[in-house]
């Protein structure tokens, strides 16, 4: 596979530009290049899905784009603003107004109710009082959370928590939404709902959404799917889905197993071993076999 830079769509305003981005952890012989010369350009209203094996640098990339981690080299521009040259105090403003985060584990504050979890983001951005309360409330109502406004996170389902997380991400009206495995902790129905929400955020509200995920369902709404491996974007090959963990994986080089005349692909020998022990368990639950339902690359 060859290294490449993804230039995005041809039309529309560019919201995110990443150029030659590298992140090296450690030094000398123990240095690890988590992200290695990545380039990326994403337009307004576009949904980009970044996939790749565990440890490929997906989250590191997202963290740098979200101004939570300084890159070793390279530049990141959000709405034309080079955030890699900013001081920490200025990055705080970037996080408030330019970027919204949606996390895998929701990261809601357990001491606050749903509405307050959204309101606190407004407070941090300088909005307080009744105006902030109303805005937080409306953001949640828009996501169908009206009956749960005063519920603490522990009383919410996973899907509801992720709605609150999404409301918090968009309430300060950032142009760029970064989502890290937004459906990983959700069941099928809740995951689907979240995918739909992210699609609406991009398509109806015109925000740019960058999603890091293993979840193949997100491919349905993504405008582009990028494959990150060893810290670099690579041409996406044929993707298959691991019947054990559901992770999208590149067929080439993946551990495989023949079962009942079909070839199954796994993200690791661990998943293959688990499949070997009880293959019927993973086939019988309705998981389409790789042969029947290949997940092909773009």
């Amino acid at each position: 596979m060859s290294e490449r830079t993804d230039d995005g769509q041809k039309d529309g305003e560019t919201v995110l530009e990443v150029h030659d981005l590298t992140k090296v952890f450690g030094s000398g012989e123990t240095a690890v290049r988590a992200v290695d010369g990545v380039g990326l350009s994403v337009k307004r209203g576009e949904i980009v899905l970044v996939m790749g094996p565990s440890g490929s640098g997906k989250t590191t990339l997202l963290t740098m784009i979200g101004s939570l981690l300084k890159p070793t080299t390279g530049t990141i521009r959000i709405n034309g603003l080079d955030i890699t040259s900013l001081h920490e105090s200025e990055l705080t403003k970037v996080r408030r107004h330019y970027v919204g985060f949606v996390f895998q584990s929701f990261n809601l504050l357990e001491s606050l109710n749903a509405q307050e979890n959204v309101e606190v983001a407004l407070n941090l951005a300088g909005n307080a009082g009744k105006g902030a309360r109303n805005k937080a409330r409306q953001a949640l109502v828009d996501l169908g959370m009206k009956p749960r406004l005063k519920f603490k996170p522990k009383a919410l389902s996973g899907g509801e928590k992720q709605r609150v997380s999404i409301a918090r991400a968009v309430v300060n009206d950032p142009q760029l939404i970064l989502a890290d495995e937004p459906t990983a902790n959700l069941d099928s129905k809740q995951g689907h709902d979240v995918v739909v929400l992210l699609r609406d955020i991009a398509k109806k509200e015109g925000r740019t959404v960058v999603i890091v995920s293993h979840d193949h369902r997100i491919r349905e709404v993504a405008d582009r799917v990028l494959w990150l491996e060893d810290g670099r974007f690579k041409d996406i090959g044929r993707l298959e889905r691991d019947p054990v963990c559901g992770m999208a994986i590149e067929a080439e080089g993946a551990p495989t197993l023949q079962y009942e005349g079909r070839t199954y692909y796994f993200c690791s020998v661990g998943c293959r071993g688990e499949f070997e022990e009880q293959p019927a368990k993973f086939v019988a639950v309705g998981t389409p076999s790789a042969a029947q339902s290949p997940i092909s690359g773009d």
Partner: peptide, 13 residues
């Protein structure tokens, strides 16, 4: 500590 990290991530100075 995670809460404070979340707050920092969503824009707390």
């Amino acid at each position: 500590i995670r809460d404070y990290g979340v707050l920092k991530a969503v824009g707390a100075s």
